[in-house]
Amino acid sequence: MNLTLKIWRQKNNKEKGKMVTYKVQDISDDMSFLEMMDVLNEELLKKGEEPVAFDHDCREGICGMCSMYINGHPHGPERTTTCQLHMRSFKDGDTITIEPWRAKGFPVVKDLVVDRSAFDRIIQAGGFVSVNTGVSVDANEIPIAKDVASEAMDAATCIGCGACVAACKNASAMLFVSAKISHLGLLPQGKTEKNRRVQRMIAQMDAEEFGACTNTGACAAECPKSISLVNIARMNREYFAAKVASEA
C-alpha cells in the first residue's frame, strides 16, 4: 500500500516544530508500524535528509519505550503499543498523522522523542518497598491469596509508556501513579508504608505539573495494557485515608 505520513519534526527542545508530509510506497500488511517508519527513515537517509527520531527498544510491547501519537490516539487505533501495531490496520491511500506525546510533564526532546523522566522521579518518591538486599524471610512465610496476587499483578503490568497522560485532555498521570500504588498497596509487603507512599507519590506527581483527573476515563480506554480505572479509585481512597491519619 501507499501512504501519506504527516509527521511532527522538531530539531530539539528549544526550536519550534512543525508537521512535515512524506510519502511511503509498497508498504506490506505484515510490517509493524515501526518497520514502516524504518522504511521511511532509510529513504530519508539515502536522500541525505535526517531520519525521524523516535523511541523504541523491545518491539514486543513490554519495555514501554515506543510512544507515537497516531491519528489522534496514543499508540494508534488498536489497543496495543506502537511497536505491536501492524500495517494491516491501515489501507492503501490513507493519510496518517504522527505526533509525539503532548504533555507539560513530557517535554519534546526531538521529533517524536519526549522526556518521561518525571515518571522515574514519581517512583523515586515512594514507588517501592523499603527492604534492603539480604532479607531472611522465606518467600512462603506470608501466604497471599491468589486473587489478591493476581490483582496486584494486573496493576503491576503497567509498562510506564505514558499513553495515559497523552490520552488525557488534562495530561493527568493518575493512571500510572495509581497502578503502582495499587500494586504495592495490595500486597502485605507493601502495606506498611502505604500512607507515606501515596502522599509522596502524589506530591511528586503534582510537582511534575501533570494535570488533574476529571474522571473522563480516556486513560484507561487507551492504555495498551488495560490498566483499570479501579486503581484510581483505590488511590483516592488511600490518599484520603492517609490524609486523615496524618492529621489525626
Partner: peptide
C-alpha cells in the same frame, strides 16, 4: 517477594 514481586500463586 519481599520487594513486592507478584509471582503466581
Amino acid at each position: 517477594v519481599a520487594q513486592g514481586v507478584p509471582f503466581a500463586r
